[in-house]
Design a protein around this nucleic acid. Sequence first.
RNA 1: GGGGGAGUAGCUCAAUCGGUUAGAGCUGCGGGCUUAUAUCCCGCUGGUUCCAGGUUCGAGUCCUGGCUCCCCUACCA
Length: 1116
Amino acid sequence: MRGSRARDARGPMFRPVSARPDFVAQEHELLREWAERKTFARLRAQNEGHPRWSFLDGPITANNPMGVHHAWGRTYKDLYQRFHAMLGEDQRYQNGFDCQGLWVEVNVEKALGFTSKRDIEAYGIAEFVRLCKQRVLTYAARQTEQSIRLGYWMDWNDPAELLRLRDLMDQDPGQQATIQGAHGPVTDTVEMLVGRLGMPEVGGSYFTFSNENNDLIWGFLAECHRRGWVYRGHDTMPWCPRCGTGLSQMEMNEGYADREDPGLTVRFPLVDRPGEALLVWTTTPWTLAANVAAAVGEDLAYARVRQGDDVFWLAKGTLKQALRGPFTVLEETTGKTLEGWRYTGPFDALPAVEAAFAEAGYEHRVVLWDQVGEAEGTGIVHVAPGCGAEDYQLGRSAGLPIFGPIDEDGRYYEGFGWLTGKEAPEAAEDVVSDLEQRGFFYHLEPYAHRYPHCWRCSTPLLFRLVDEWYISMGPVYDQPRETLTPEQVDASLRYQIMEAVDRIRWFPAFGHDREIDWLLNMRDWMISKKRYYGLALPIFDCQECGTFDVIGGREELRARAVEGWDQLEGHTPHRPHVDAVRIACPNCGAPTARIADVGNPWLDAGIVPFSTIHYREDPEYWAKWFPVDLVTESFPGQFRNWFYSMLAMSTVLRREPPFKALFGYATLYGEDGRPMHKSWGNAIEFDEAAERMGVDVIRWMYASARPEDNILFGWHAADEARRGLLVLWNVYAFFVTYARLAGWTPASGAPAVAERPPLDRWILSRAAGTVSAVEARLREFDAEGATRVLGAFIDDLSTWYLRLSRRRMSRSTGADRDAAFATLHAALAGLARTVAPILPFLSESMYGNLVAGVDPAAPESVHLSGWPAAELEPLRDEALEDAMALARRAVDLSRTVRGQAGLKARQPLARLWLALPGREVGELDALLELVRAEANVKEVALIGDESALVDRGVKVLLPKVGRRLGAKIPAVMAAAREGRFEIHQDGAVTLEGETLAADEVEVQATPRPGTAVAHDDGLVVVIDTTLTPELRAEGDARELGRAIQDLRKEAELDLDDRIELWLDGVGRELDPYLAPVVADTLADVVRRERPPEGLAEAVVRLEAGEARIAVRRAGA
RNA sequence: GGGGGAGUAGCUCAAUCGGUUAGAGCUGCGGGCUUAUAUCCCGCUGGUUCCAGGUUCGAGUCCUGGCUCCCCUACCA
């Protein structure tokens, strides 16, 4: 139990630690403890007023429970904030929820069973918007709980309070309520309280539906308008007939998918050439009702062909692909000839078509268009300016009549005869059969292509003539950026944004170029949506004189309102209340209403560097925290979404970047490399992952992932990560186990570090180096590099330090034992603090036991303990680290050599010869002793590489001499391989008559065939394979020792149980070597006789023959 | 359709300025060490470096052509 500290005369002792930890249970316990002790609040208080580190959270859409992919980003967000907190820096800790827009609307519609916008209007916009807000509160509460579970330390709202507001809103949004704010209770109507979430007086997460957020976007839009950048576009836009809204360019990219459409070839009879017709191809038959012209390429070759009784015109290059059946070419000409030819359109009789043509005084004719090609179709393009953006452009420049055939649900308008009221895409079949009956049909075959779909509801998009609102991005100059004049940049917002982009550090670095690329290519920003729940665009459009104005804030609106203010008073600035307000048109004075449109949701997220840092209410505060030090999000999509909108808005408002660094990461997939999908069985819910994997394991997986690569997330990957953490845990568990046995605590004392053996000083140096390397990596947002550094240290600690020091802790006494305990304790405590930002639970558990539990003066949480770099730095000794690396490699080589010679590691050998690379090695004697013990040899002898024990080899440094030697290279290399060379006094080498200077070759020791030798980078190890009877006997004794230990384990004896030992069939030649075995195995009594029945016993195969052994707990 | 990037062991990825025997980790198999370990160590298996040409003493690397995949971008009918 935590808190129940064992105490004896020496003070508190470590609490026992299981070697089979339940990480998940431990995490829950620590969450409770942090909550009880208010650890996070204490951390904030501890750093208050210190130098600042400003992190800005990208809002998570509060529309569903949080997924494991969100946990990836939230791991980064939390670990960098924790790291900077340990550096003592003051932070804001404000989470954000993205609240407005189609995401939420679609889900609420689904819940209500709605299928169209008419359903919403019938239901009531006010009610609908209220349900949208309630949904946001529901999932904000849910995601808050999940984030807390992840260990994410933020200034969270109490989830229960969010749900209470939701329920109060459900009863009556107008009722008064009180919530506990940051500085005391706050009372307001429920609706307004919700609108004030995240504000300074309320605290907690920010919500993009807040009054302040909406208000500041109004200010931004008004500023754009002041500069003349806001305009209304009358254009043909991609349109989702289900959602009843246009899509911006940013949204278009999400929804491309393969689709099959009817590829229809129709005939347009020529008015002035009886019996002849143009052949025209389209994949959208429903647009034929809006046909206005047929376009041909001016210089393209066209042919007049006869097929039976028919004569057709089409591009020469398309004859084979477009025509069915035999044909005869009658004539060839260029597109220019066809210009102006009149033809009969397929739906000329429809009233709407007649009216549009009559108004324009126009008849169907052939026009020239440079975009016409022959790759598909007939080389004659059906032009419907009301049904396609390019058609629209052509229509405008050629002065053609422009009319759109469909309404916002995708149904034909009045005036389209039998088509009226039909859904346009579904009408295709009827259109085809109608054309067949009326003689316009030529051919139909399915056509597969990539077609845009609504990214939200997957409905195929239509192209529809609408009014939308835009922010102009300014001209694109056809010249390199560096040659632009300041005047040119001042005239183009996109280049101003690019200047901000240049001033930001992008991780990974390609982000910079990708953002610039987007800015160069993007069109004007479409900011309107014909929907209900979202930012109310503050554009007031006078129906009398056509002037529009943009209102910059709620107060301005109040001041300028001439009617309807009372209906908005007391409400958040959402539809429908805001729709009631009228202002006086600045031009003609007429009462003017707001346009019905709501805003693009990226406006909501883009303003947060201002709204959430109180740009308007507290400029001094804002200036302290802006620009922020870091934003981080998954990068797919965000270069054109959040990153873009923040950059654009900050550039307009401040002409400076809103953040100094951006860290982006890729996409999360299932373990099988495919997107997570419930029906594919590879999806993992966050809650399930947290409770089965443990969040520290999850965080370690995420932190160690390469952020620019997609991550494959799954149970196997989690098991692998857990194995790594268990190594750390077991080192810790070992320490605690033996420290408790020995009664050692930090209060027991230990020799000064300088007095400890090199191995101790080495691991302390490694700990110090690890902290500083981790710090350097985390300062550069390189969590992956940090985990690699930590992993290497854990490996060193476990497989080298602990393995070599184990006996000092389990069997030694006095200063040597204390030095080992103190060293391992310091290494583990330092490691716990270093790993704390990444593994907040595991580190807290270790620290709580190793430090806080035994030292009342220490900070009570690892997260309050500060970054340990400065404390550990004096322990650094890089020369010792280099030397140790060499020693470890020598031991590895000795094992390789033993393997070659068939000698077990347990078999002592008389001698090991070692040739070191030329450089200086510090503390040589101590290290050689270490190698001796670890390699299990009686003596280590140093040899030079000229020793008779090894051959010498020559490595030709090709990069240096390759150019000079040229064609002689193969012969020279062969000579080097075969040992045909002469080494001169000065180090030069002659091969095949070519003399190479000393710096052009590397002379190295190589194994001589037939000896047990291994080498690596100048290091050579040779062993004496001769076994004397004494060595064999000693080896047998050690084998016996191992077998006894096995038996103890098998008999489930405690580590400190004394035993009685039976050795049957063990020869007297082993006697000189049995003393350490008896001591190690804690044997009080040794009986050289057959063991009695019923004991734990085993048969051991020794060099000297089989022996039977048995153990029994002493006194049992 | 346009632009960019990448194809190397069963999987994930290295390989300096072109340098001669293409390496790691994971997986698999064999062996070893160990009363902290679920670990670790050693070895083995595994390669047409996408394909076809070219340049060079030498090509995974450079050049040409093709194939495949990924990313960015894009309503050509």
